[in-house]
Amino acid sequence: MYGRKVKLRFFFIVAIILSVILSVFLVLKSLEENVVYFKSPSDIKSLGKFGNEKIRIGGMVKQDSIKIKSNQVNFIITDLKSEINVTYSGVVPNLFSEGKGVVAEGYLKDKIFFEATKILAKHDENYMPPEVKAALENK
């Protein structure tokens, strides 16, 4: 028979290993479920099929494309190669304007139509989200 001390220790180690495995599993699983992928308008054009998951689209707001109505805002995101129409009803950030970088989060309806649930705000005029910059540079 092992002593009480050893048993307790054994119990402790098993408990710790089990909880570590459990938490790793949980973390991985929910990462898989809750990750939001970033796409540029060109990526979407070349997309074979699209599911119902939430994505982010980044690029520049096209000049003269913002149209505002009482319940929604429409605009076009472009990466200077492909374009995508966005409709959005919600709060628009301060630095949202034509010719500026933008990241919209939401769901694709089809290849040229995107329904945004959120437009991400930035605090700095000079800041261009890294993804958007990459999208614009790959043109």
Binding site: N34, V35, F38
Partner: peptide
């Protein structure tokens, strides 16, 4: 949740972000 996007981008050049549901759920 904070550094995973950096790792994923370097390793597979996938661009992602991890949103509040991830943290809430866990």
């Amino acid at each position: 949740g904070t550094v995973y996007p950096i790792f994923l981008e370097v390793i597979s050049s996938q661009k992602i972000s991890v949103g509040p549901p991830f943290y809430h759920k866990l």
